[in-house]
Design a protein around this nucleic acid. Structure first.
Length: 608
RNA sequence: GACUUGCUAGUUCAAUGGAUAGAACGGGGCUCUCCUAAAGCUCAAAUCCGGGUUCGAUUCCCGGGCGGGUCACCA
């Protein structure tokens, strides 16, 4: 809620108290932007008071409107006029009030950023007393390169971290790399058998792609063996189990667990290749981490936590030696934590990771950015961590986002229907570069290097916005046959609006906030009102964990500006005070657009 | 099967229980001697079905239909 809304809320409450003798709850004061077809700026919905007033909605709206006009501060009246339409009280706010709001926004360097999360840090001493939120995202396996599903994860994770930081949290971005297990052994084995010593250098392939190729190769050869075995009369299940390649991979995993020096050395070497590849992709995507954990370090930690839980009676052991948690009292099943041979499972590893993280940081809130297919896993993890005494366990947030689907369904690595992250970014940037070749007027005189840099920002901006504008909880569709738009409700549209403003500001003389006009055109007023919404948008995005909320707002702001820009000239305005006002407006629209896009990880070019 | 989640123009997406359900792309028609036309203006086009709660339901509840997902000693 911005200061304007606060003031109106308080006026409305006073009105209700004076007229009907009841204290209105905050939730009963419903304010919304007045629809354009009606006169006014802010609308109070009066239906909640109709019952206590025992009058028709229209009459209630009329009464409250009159009361507000007669009782607001006389020397600086905020509300200029009103009209009542059914249960809606439309209030008109004075131009001078709006201009003051604009000046305040201009003076506020941290507009849209908050000092503290709700509830804590009451004295404004939040610099050293910030609550700490850890955001886990990305969390790749080291046997294949990143694809579009990871892209959604990475962009959401990074953006959520930015948004929570704007809401006053100290945020630690983290990544748990799934670097051990049968999947990586498969790649290693295929490389040993068929690789002839191929390296990223010798092949010219990115490390993660190289390893991914051997993972696919393993699958191909494995299927061949199964086919041979079943042709020889073996049933399929047995063939899958007994195929020599699978047995070898399992043997390799056992050697890995036993610290066999040769296997470990190969593992380390191949993982390094993958990390180099991932790092490049992350850098390109513009995401980063403050702390990286590796499953190879955390899974043993998990085992010992489970042993502790066993000792304390939180878990129990079955006759075959496997360890389980009984969650039936929580309405869930029994969950395996250690296999009968003593090896760990996915859950064990996550417990170990939590333990290490909690040792390293004073975590107040733990957020896991993981797909919605793992909802059950995190429900269980929350209960288990709570039982093991982790303060954040019960309230951990599983930021459960939807899948990216292709026209014919889900992406499947093995079926080759994945959209590769590196390829996609390449294509977006190339498309942006191609489009920019028509912009001979605006981009004249810039170097090839600058042009490429603009194309990079615009191409990635299009991709990021395309993904982030969708409600994260919902599945979304990506059609590789249709290229991602650069027109309409897109990242480039917002970047373009920003570049236009920068162009105007470059040509303008310095801003003089004191000498601005106090008369507003409706388009100017509308734009100021939109700017005023920004802080509450940042709040909502934080509460709902939704970068899409930021996207919607930035788009609306850019639309409002473009409409204003089209109708009213800034630099050619003869009236000096009006011109000053418009420049001030433009500068602050640019400021807010830049700030909003930064929350999404989208860079803004100065020209395009 | 159980649990869970979703269903809105031709397509991809919006809409704290509020006024005539918004955009974009695609389709039709306009606007560059004018601060960047990656823009602006304009026309046609949608809430899966049936009940209920409410002054008011795309939104909440119940039933049905159709899609996702989860129910592994995989991660």
């Amino acid at each position: 809620m911005n200061s304007l809304e606060q003031q109106i809320t308080s006026l409305a409450k006073s009105a209700v108290k004076a007229l009907y003798g009841v204290e209105a709850e905050d939730s009963q004061i419903q304010l919304q932007k007045t629809r354009p077809e009606f006169e006014g700026n802010i609308t109070l919905v009066v239906f909640p008071f109709v019952k206590t007033a025992r009058k028709a909605p229209q009459a209630v709206a009329q009464e409250i409107g009159e009361w507000i006009i007669n009782n607001q501060m006389v020397n600086n009246p905020m509300v200029n006029g009103f009209n009542a339409v059914q249960g809606f009280l439309n209030l008109t706010i004075s131009d001078s009030f709006w201009v003051e709001q604009l000046k305040a926004i201009n003076a506020d360097e941290h507009f849209g950023r908050f000092k503290h999360p709700n509830g804590k840090c009451p004295n404004g001493k939040c610099e050293n007393d910030q609550m700490l939120m850890m955001v886990e995202y990305s969390s790749p396996n080291t046997n294949k390169p990143l694809h579009l599903g990871h892209v959604r994860n990475n962009l959401l994770g990074y953006s959520i971290a930015q948004i929570q930081e704007a809401n006053g949290w100290k945020v630690v971005k983290t990544n748990i790399v799934n670097d051990r297990g049968i999947h990586i052994c498969k790649s290693m084995l295929a490389w040993l058998k068929f690789g002839n010593g191929e390296t990223p250098e010798s092949s010219g392939k990115k490390g993660d792609h190289l390893i991914g190729d051997y993972y696919v190769r393993f699958d191909k050869e494995y299927k061949k063996q199964i086919a041979e075995l079943t042709a020889g009369g073996m049933d399929e299940e047995t063939a899958k189990r007994e195929a020599p390649l699978m047995l070898e991979a399992q043997e390799m995993l056992r050697k890995w667990e036993a610290n066999d020096p040769e296997v470990r050395a190969l593992w380390a070497k191949m993982n390094e290749w993958v990390y180099a590849g991932f790092d490049e992709t992350y850098r390109r995507m513009g995401v980063s981490f403050d702390k990286i954990y590796y499953e190879s370090n955390t899974y043993l930690e998990g085992k010992s936590e489970v042993e502790k839980g066993l000792a304390s009676g939180a878990f129990y052991r079955r006759e075959d030696g496997s360890v389980w948690a009984d969650l039936t009292k929580d309405g869930l099943d029994e969950k395996l934590l250690l296999r009968s041979d003593g090896t760990s499972v996915y859950m064990t590893q996550d417990i170990g990771t939590a333990k290490l993280r909690f040792q390293d940081y004073p975590i107040d809130k733990m957020v896991y950015v993981v797909g919605n297919e793992q909802e059950y896993h995190f429900k269980v993890l929350s209960i288990l961590l709570d039982r093991l005494g982790f303060p954040f366990g019960k309230e951990l947030v599983h930021f459960s986002y939807g899948m990216v689907e292709l026209p014919n369904g889900k992406m499947k690595s093995r079926e080759g229907t994945v959209v590769d992250a590196d390829d996609l970014m390449d294509k977006m940037v190339a498309d942006a570069r191609e489009i920019s070749k028509d912009k001979v007027n605006t981009l004249q005189g810039i170097t090839e290097e600058e042009a490429n840099e603009i194309a990079r920002m615009v191409g990635l901006g299009a991709l990021k916005y395309f993904i982030l504008k969708v409600d994260p909880r919902k599945n979304m569709l990506f059609n590789p046959a249709e290229s991602i738009d650069f027109n309409g409700n897109t990242g480039p549209f917002i970047q373009y609006t920003y570049a236009r403003i920068q162009s105007v500001l470059r040509k303008a003389e310095s801003l003089q906030p004191s000498a601005v006009s106090s008369q507003l055109d409706p388009k100017e007023l509308n734009l100021i009102q939109r700017l005023c919404e920004y802080p509450s948008v940042v709040r909502t995005a934080g509460e709902e964990f939704s970068p899409a909320v930021i996207c919607n707002y930035a788009y609306a702001l850019a639309c409002d500006f473009n409409s204003f820009y089209h109708d009213l000239s800034i630099l050619n305005e003869p009236d000096g005070q009006k011109k000053a006002l418009r420049l001030l407006l433009a500068a602050n629209v640019a400021k807010v657009l830049r700030s909003a896009m930064a929350l999404l990880g989208i860079e803004m070019p100065e020209r395009m």
